[in-house]
Computed example of a mutant assay.
Amino acid sequence: MTSKLIAAALGAAALLTLPVSTVQAADATGEWARPNGASKIRISNCGSSLCGKLIWLREPRNDTQNPDASKRSRPLLGVQIVQSMKPTKKDNQWKGKVYNAEDGKTYTGFIELTSANKLKLEGCVMGGLICKGETWTRTK
């Protein structure tokens, strides 16, 4: 009888820990709008990473600040600005690269899903010591 009680207790303990071990990462894929409303970005899977490209611009323009002169005449629409984001140890956060078309530079970047409809994006310099970011709102 004692072994049955121990087995029941172990079974109950296993059930209590089950939800913790089956927690799934939040879904950052979808369409997001910048807070100023100037653009929308579609975040999608690209292999084992997340990537994001510009899908809408209030004022369409070319990639004039790109350091590669051959790309300065290309339209910004369709350009991948969120690149190779891989999960970090922090829940709902990914790290990769962020291309800033306003200055033509690529930064170490982080995206973090802060709620189901809010995605914080940061671009960092000096190994992440100085970061600047904004929070995007899900549109789809």
Rank of each mutant, 00 (worst) to 15 (best):
K120T: 07
W56E: 08
W56C: 09
S70V: 06
G78D: 07
L57C: 13
W94N: 00
N62G: 09
T64M: 15
G78F: 10
R74C: 08
Y107E: 08
I111H: 01
P87M: 03
Y107W: 15
I111V: 01
V79G: 10
E59N: 15
G123E: 02
L76A: 09
K90M: 04
L129E: 03
G104Q: 01
G128T: 00
G96V: 06
D63G: 03
K105E: 10
Q83L: 06
L119F: 14
L76C: 12
I81Q: 03
S73C: 14
K95H: 08
G96L: 03
G96E: 12
P87K: 07
T114E: 03
A116G: 12
K53Q: 11
N117F: 15
I130E: 04
Q80N: 13
G127Y: 05
N100H: 13
T64S: 15
N62M: 11
L121D: 04
G128D: 02
C124L: 05
G127Q: 06
V125M: 15
P60H: 04
C124P: 12
V125N: 15
C124M: 03
K105Y: 12
K105M: 07
E122R: 02
Y99V: 01
V125A: 15
N92R: 09
K90F: 06
Q80G: 12
P75I: 02
P75D: 03
T108Q: 00
N62A: 08
K97S: 06
I130G: 11
G109H: 05
S48G: 11
C51D: 09
N62T: 07
L77Y: 11
L54E: 03
Q93I: 09
W56Y: 14
K118R: 06
K53V: 10
T108P: 05
S70F: 06
R72I: 00
L76Y: 09
Q83H: 07
G52M: 00
N66I: 01
Q93R: 11
G128S: 08
E112N: 14
M126Y: 14
G104N: 07
N92K: 05
Q93S: 13
G52P: 05
I55K: 00
Q93Y: 12
K95D: 05
N92D: 14
G128C: 02
P87T: 04
K105D: 08
E59G: 14
D91I: 02
R58M: 14
N66V: 01
C51G: 14
Y99W: 12
G123M: 11
M126P: 14
L50G: 03
V125H: 12
P75K: 13
Q83K: 01
G109Q: 01
P67E: 00
S115A: 09
I55E: 03
N100R: 07
K71V: 06
A101S: 10
D68I: 03
G123R: 06
E122W: 02
G128H: 08
S48R: 15
L129G: 05
L50V: 04
G109C: 00
Y99I: 02
M85F: 05
Q83W: 01
L121P: 01
R61G: 14
T114P: 05
W56S: 08
I130L: 11
G123F: 06
L119Q: 11
T88K: 01
L57A: 10
L50Q: 00
L77K: 09
Q83M: 13
P75N: 07
Y107T: 13
T88I: 00
